[in-house]
Design a protein around this nucleic acid. Structure first.
Length: 497
RNA sequence: GUCCUGUUAGCUCAGUCGGUAGAGCAUCUGACUUUUAAUCAGAGGGUCAGAGGUUCGAAUCCUCUACAGGACACCA
């Protein structure tokens, strides 16, 4: 164990002081009858004089000491609970010798319970005049500086609890996170979707393009992947007869960590029997705008230095049109060949990996390289090439494209949806194409899922499906720069001892 | 994985040209019964991320290592 700092030593010595007064340093249950929010809502409207004359009840609250100012035979402190802070006013003549000494020895960070009556100070701050002071838990480490809070980014992520204690914005972000997820649940239930849970341990890789985490089950002696998407299980439920299902859950991808990527993140996926890409567009727009309205109260949002207008009626843009306009090559042309497309991309300096074998691969590459960065306002980019969409239905008029869209806002993808491929014969061929890609070195390709094909062979109704990256949406709605700011405990390397 | 930047007291930060390590908050002692980032007086607290090198002398210059932040690459 590392040596204690001076401050830690002092705080440990105070354990003995408490025990000398028969006080348990890490105490017991404390029954409260109020909290900082209720107190402000109830009493803040009254003046100092009105409060002095009112017959108010004895308030009992508990929380952490955040500031403390001694004034000789009296003192002030702010104590914080989940809802905020309130000032307490402590007088020796009210508490008595012993309890007042306990107050004087209390440190910033200690958790206490008090009872007392409401009052306002000369300066007009609502305060509780303390009649009993109960030490509840000792803090053996000092709090960060009271004015600046915890600023060190690494410390904020590694010790999120300290970040939460001292930084209001952090608390607020996670409250909003919770509200966003709640709103999704409520709206989806309202629309008749049923929340379900499907396996996180997957024997077969599928449902998205990503590198997986691998694990092993001892009793079955068999390898598993942590799911990269719940998609294929949710669609089995549609085969089974549920007509609308959704899952909000953790998904795992074994890829680089960045401002936009955490190895585990939260996805919302839903499937609607008898729907399609078009119905998913309407649903996506309705969901996100309603969530934003309910949680933020507006559809005009600011992200960084970008103004985003979420007003309904989002733009729709076919990927081939987008690339034709911004890059200047026409993938609608019937005679477009892979050789021509590849040469075009290579001339632009793009690298073409060996598993790129179709014009669709190039189209998507051009889109991601040159067009995505230009899209700021909410836009449904649709018509993704078949090569990169192994689970989406082919377009009826042009089989090179699928009925699939991605929602792009501020150059980032927030959602991915399509008319679900329900033809088992076609699906099998798509998996076979994926396996070829895997053989050519695409580490993110889907694997053959015979059981899933068998499920489709029993007949799956035409359906629309949608996935939304919840963390990124929360980033957008809370103006958070990094995904680490919306995940309580982001992953980091071990600290050297 | 590559490049750039950062790491100084519990916290927030200074530290000039290479010349004895600084401030505020916090801590400790004393004063003060309506303070507001309380004030006043005094005190204690440092492996300058770690290792090596250059130098009479390194927080400062160089190299390596660790961790972090950012950009790129990859993806959602």
């Amino acid at each position: 164990m590392a040596e204690l700092t001076e401050q830690e030593r002092v705080r440990r010595e105070k354990l003995q002081f408490l025990e000398d007064y028969n006080i348990t340093p890490f105490g017991e249950r404390f029954d409260r009858n109020s909290n900082t929010k209720k107190i402000k809502e109830t009493y803040d409207e009254y003046s100092k004089e009105e409060l002095a004359e009112m017959d108010t009840p004895v308030l009992k609250i508990a929380g952490r000491i955040m500031t403390k100012r001694g004034k000789g035979k009296a003192g002030f402190a702010h104590i914080m609970d989940q809802h905020g802070q309130v000032q307490i006013y402590v007088r020796k003549d009210q508490l008595g010798e012993e309890a007042f000494e306990v107050f004087q020895k209390a440190d910033l960070g200690d958790i206490i319970g008090i009872s007392g009556t409401i009052m306002k100070t000369k300066m007009g701050e609502l305060s509780i005049k303390v009649t009993t002071f109960t030490h509840l838990s000792k803090a053996l480490r000092p709090l960060p500086e009271k004015y600046h809070g915890l600023k060190d980014v690494e410390e904020r992520y590694r010790r999120r609890y300290v970040d939460l204690m001292t930084n209001e914005e952090t608390r607020n972000t996670f409250v909003v996170r919770s509200k966003i997820i709640q709103a999704f649940r409520r709206i989806l239930e309202e629309k008749g979707f049923m929340e379900v849970e499907t396996p996180i341990l997957h024997p077969i890789l599928g449902g998205a393009a990503a590198r997986p985490f691998k694990t092993h089950h001892n009793a079955l002696d068999m390898p598993f992947y942590l799911r990269i998407a719940p998609e294929l299980y949710l669609k089995r439920l549609i085969v089974g007869g549920f007509e609308g299902v959704f899952e909000i859950g953790r998904t795992f991808r074994n890829e680089g960590i960045s401002i936009k990527h955490n190895p585990e993140f939260t996805m919302m996926e839903l499937y609607e029997a008898y729907g399609d890409m078009e119905s998913m567009m309407s649903l996506t727009e309705d969901l996100i705008t309603r969530v934003a309205e309910e949680v933020l109260g507006t559809l005009q949002i600011t992200y960084g230095d970008q103004e985003i207008n979420l007003n309904r009626g989002w733009q729709r843009l076919h990927m081939a049109d987008a690339v034709k306009e911004h890059v200047g090559i026409d993938f609608w042309r019937e005679d477009m060949t892979f050789v021509e497309a590849k040469k075009f991309a290579e001339d632009k300096g793009l690298e073409i990996p060996p598993h790129f074998t179709g014009t669709g691969h190039i189209l998507n590459l051009l889109f991601e390289s040159y067009v995505e960065e230009k899209i700021i306002q909410p836009t449904f980019v649709y018509g993704h090439p078949i090569e990169i969409s192994p689970l989406a239905k082919k377009n009826n008029e042009d089989g090179r494209f699928t009925d699939r869209f991605e929602l792009i806002i501020n150059s980032r993808e927030y959602g991915n949806a399509f008319s679900e491929l329900n033809n088992p014969i076609d699906q099998k061929e798509r998996f076979e194409a994926q396996i070829k890609e895997k053989d050519l070195g695409n580490a993110e390709a889907n694997e053959m899922d015979h059981d899933y094909i068998e499920a489709l062979e029993y007949g799956m109704p035409p359906a629309g499906g949608l996935g939304i990256g919840i963390d990124r949406l929360i980033m957008l709605l809370t103006d958070s720069k990094s995904i680490r700011d919306v995940i309580f405990f982001p992953h980091m390397r071990h600290r050297q001892q």
